[in-house]
Design a protein around this nucleic acid. Structure first.
Lengths: 152, 152
DNA sequence: GATGAGGCTTCCAGCCATGGGAAGGTCAAT
DNA sequence: ATTGACCTTCCCATGGCTGGAAGCCTCATC
């Protein structure tokens, strides 16, 4: 199988296959006499593994570790689990950040009339020196529920 | 105010201030006779605006648009709102992807004994040609609740 | 056997937002 | 005058790709 077929079979682009080889994530491919890369079933298998791992958001270095464990017949499943859960922790961190952004933006957007007048709480918030005000609003029953006092 | 003070006052690093200037997000700074960049209140204001926008996950190009609207006294708040909500849509898309990853990984990790034996559902999933199986498990009451049949 | 299409090869460069560092000029205080 | 903290420009690196250019290889068709 040449690199193009392999890309189609695994969902990993030819560019990425070569990149993974360059960076040492995967071993150097066999070559034909004329220099074309050749892939066999086990290579396809490995590339699909990598693709799956990437779909789950693993970074290249963690994928390297996963591949190592995958190949290691005497691995401890605890090591795999530890890696996976470490990754979950990272993902949840990002998740929390995104959720905060969405919450803030939706709150602001709700307060914005969205008409042809220029006054806009979103811009007001962005230009505010102290971004903490919005935090107060997010907790129900907190000190103030008025994000933007009338004066503007 | 020189660039270092400005960085401290705005939370935007000197590196980033220069970068924003290079890429045209902000206008070229004034200079002293010896070539030092000089910033005034309005510049500080603008950089803080940018920082806030970045904290909310806006990309540089959207920040450029936001800055344009911010400066435009005859803007329509509808335009700002549209931008913000477009960004929210992007964020929610990412959010969904991350949530799916976390759900999949947590399901797999729960199924993993995490001991000193090599068999591990996480690796099994990664090497599976068809990643759809896990989806079935996520819906309660679906066809099968057994992610990994005993044969391994 | 020639030709053309479409593969393959390497190399180089860019994306986004940022950090690091080198080499050299400037400023303020001692 | 010296010191140390700043500033300047420049280049390089990150991750995880994508794109392009220039040139070689393969194969079907004529």
């Amino acid at each position: 199988m040449n690199i193009g077929e392999t890309a189609r079979a695994t969902g990993v682009s030819t560019k990425m296959i070569r990149y993974y080889e360059d960076t040492g994530l995967i071993p150097q491919a066999l070559r034909t006499g004329s220099g074309y890369r050749v892939y066999r079933d086990q290579d396809i298998h490995m590339l699909r593994f990598i693709r799956r791992a990437r779909d789950l958001g693993f970074g290249v270095s963690m994928i390297g570790e996963l591949l190592g464990l995958w190949r290691d017949r005497s691995r401890h499943s605890a090591d795999v689990k530890r890696l996976a859960l470490a990754h979950v922790t990272e993902l949840k961190q990002k998740l929390r950040e995104l959720e905060d952004m969405v919450a803030t933006l939706e709150t602001l957007a709700e307060c914005c009339h969205g008409n042809d007048r220029p006054d806009c709480p979103i811009l007001k918030e962005l230009e505010a020196p102290d971004p903490a005000r919005i935090e107060i609003v997010k907790r129900p029953g907190a000190i103030s529920t008025k994000m933007y006092p009338q004066r503007q």
